[in-house]
Design a protein around this nucleic acid. Structure first.
Lengths: 194, 194
DNA sequence: GTCTATAATTCGATAGAC
DNA sequence: GTCTATCGAATTATAGAC
C-alpha cells in the first residue's frame, strides 16, 4: 500500500508524458530516428511540440526515454534444455509483435551510434544474463552473439525490410525452421575449426 | 573488341562521376541515407555540390545509382551439395568486407522504403536465381528467405551494430558456426510442423 | 501547464556567370 | 564543365505571453 510515493494527487502532466512517449515509440518505430520529427510526434500525441522539449529536453533525450527496453527473458538454465531454441524463438516473436519499441531500436541503431550502443547493451547484458549457468562462461558471450545474429536477422527481414517469404511464414513455421538454429547456438558442440 | 562504344576520347566528366559515386557509397554506408548530405558527399569527392545535382538529378537519383549491387552468387546447383552452407557463408563474408555498398544498403533499407525495395529485389531475385534447380520450386523462396534472415542478421550484428562477440569472431570461426545453419535452410528436410 | 512566435541552422535544389 | 550565390522549405530549440 505504501509501495508508491503516493502523490497527493495524480499530476495531470503524467498523462501528457505518457502520451508523448507512446507517440514517440510509434513514430521512431515507423520511420527511424532521423525521419521522425518532434512536430510529428507532438501532433500524434495531440499536444504542442514545445511540450516535448519541456519534458524530455531534446530529441535525443526523448529517444533515450523511448528506447528503454526489457526483453523479459526467463532464466534459460531453469528451462528444459532441449526446448530452449523453440522457447526462445517463440518468446522473441511474441515480444516483437507485442511492442514496437524493438523495431524502433533496430531501425535507429543502423544510423545512430547512441542507439547502436543501446542495442549492444540490451543484447549483451540481458541475453548473457539469461544464459547464466547454461554454457561455459568463456563461450557464453559468443553463443549469445550468434543467437542475436539469427534473432535480429529474423526481425530485420520480417519486420523491417519485410522480405515476402519471411513475412508470409506463420509463427509456427518460423519456430519450426529457426528453433534448431538457436538451439545449436545455445547448447550445441563447439565446431572443430573454432 | 567492339564490345565498347569506343568513345572518341575519354570524357573528363567520367572521372568526376566515378568520384561522386565512390564518395556517395562511402557516406551512405557510414551514415545511412538521411544523415548523408549532398554537401558532405561533394566535399569528400572534392567537387562542388552542384555537380552532384547536374549528374544525378537528385539525392534519390544518386542513391539509386550508388545502390546497384551484384551479389555475384555462383549457381549453387553446380557446387558440391554438402558444402553449400560453407561456401555461401564464406562468399558473403568476402563480398561484404570487399564492398561497402551492401552495408550502405542495409543501413538505408531500415528507414527508406525505396532502399528496402531494392534490398528485397536483390535477395529475392539474385538469391532465388542462384538456387535454381536446387530445391523444390514451391519451397525455394522460403528457403532463400531463411538464408537471408541469417546472412543479413550476421551483417547487421557484425558490420552495422557491431556486437562485440560477433565482431571478434574471425571468419573461419564464423563459417564453422553459421555454415550448418545455412546448409540446413538450403538442403535440410522441411520441419514437421511447417 | 500550455501555447505562440521566432531564432538559428541546415538542407535540397535552382539560376546563371565564367 | 565547373563554380558562386541564393532561394525556399524544414528542422531543433528557445523566449516568453497567457
Amino acid at each position: 500500500m505504501t509501495s508508491e510515493p503516493a502523490p497527493t494527487r495524480a499530476r495531470r502532466s503524467d498523462a501528457t508524458r505518457a502520451a508523448i512517449l507512446r507517440a514517440a515509440r510509434e513514430r521512431f518505430a515507423a520511420d527511424g530516428y532521423d525521419r521522425s520529427t518532434i512536430r510529428a510526434i507532438a501532433a500524434e500525441a495531440r499536444i504542442d511540440p514545445s511540450m516535448v522539449m519541456r519534458y524530455y529536453g531534446s530529441k535525443e533525450g526523448l529517444f533515450a526515454a523511448a528506447a528503454e527496453f526489457d526483453l523479459r527473458l526467463p532464466a534459460l538454465a531453469e528451462l528444459p534444455r532441449e526446448q530452449l531454441g523453440e522457447l526462445l524463438v517463440r518468446h522473441f516473436l511474441d515480444r516483437w509483435e507485442g511492442d514496437e519499441t524493438l523495431a524502433a531500436l533496430v531501425r535507429t541503431a543502423t544510423t545512430s551510434p547512441g542507439a547502436a550502443e543501446r542495442m549492444r547493451a540490451i543484447f549483451a547484458e540481458q541475453l548473457t544474463a539469461a544464459m547464466a549457468g547454461l554454457a561455459d562462461p568463456t563461450e557464453a558471450p559468443r553463443r549469445a552473439g550468434l543467437v542475436a545474429s539469427q534473432i535480429l536477422g529474423l526481425a530485420l527481414t520480417r519486420y523491417i525490410i519485410r522480405l515476402p517469404p519471411v513475412v508470409d511464414l506463420d509463427p509456427a513455421e518460423l519456430v519450426a525452421w529457426v528453433a534448431p538454429t538457436v538451439q545449436r547456438y545455445l547448447t550445441g558442440p563447439t565446431p572443430a575449426s573454432a
